[in-house]
Computed example of a mutant assay.
Amino acid sequence: MKVSFTAPLWEWDARAAWYFVTVPAEQSDDVRDRPRMPRGFGAVKVRATVGGSTWDTSVFPDSSAGSYILPVKKAVREAEGIGEGDPVEVRLQLLEL
């Protein structure tokens, strides 16, 4: 399963230098509804692509928003020239079934 979306990059208040993109509600519902083995913290393994950067990671449920969040590592932010508040075009491929 693949999902695509654009959302702003944001920094986590609780931990400086950790950046995320929130998966919109509709795409989060698609991720949530896909059958898979349970994992710690409700994480879902994905292959993320932003621009020319692709990496394997997990999306995590954000109970306050009811959506998933995607961590965006420093190497990707630097390679793609994105900073806090910038719109980020994301493609996610779910790796778990």
Rank of each mutant, 00 (worst) to 15 (best):
S64I: 04
R39V: 00
A43Y: 08
S63V: 04
R39W: 04
S64L: 08
G81A: 07
T49Y: 04
Q93A: 13
V76G: 08
D56M: 05
R77Q: 12
M37R: 14
G83A: 12
A75F: 13
G81W: 04
M37W: 00
R47M: 02
V44I: 08
R91F: 03
F41C: 01
R39G: 00
F60E: 05
S63M: 11
V88D: 06
G83H: 07
P35L: 07
W55N: 04
G52W: 09
P38F: 02
S64N: 11
M37Y: 04
K45C: 01
L94D: 05
V46S: 00
T54S: 14
L94M: 15
R36Y: 02
F60N: 09
S53A: 08
K73F: 11
D56K: 13
P61K: 00
R47K: 13
R47W: 00
T54F: 08
E78Q: 13
Y68E: 12
G51D: 09
V50K: 03
T49R: 15
T49M: 10
K73G: 09
K45W: 08
T57E: 06
P35M: 10
A75I: 09
F60T: 12
K74S: 15
V50Q: 01
R91W: 04
G42F: 01
R36A: 03
R36G: 02
A79W: 02
V88C: 06
G51E: 09
A65N: 13
P71H: 11
A79E: 14
L92S: 09
G85M: 04
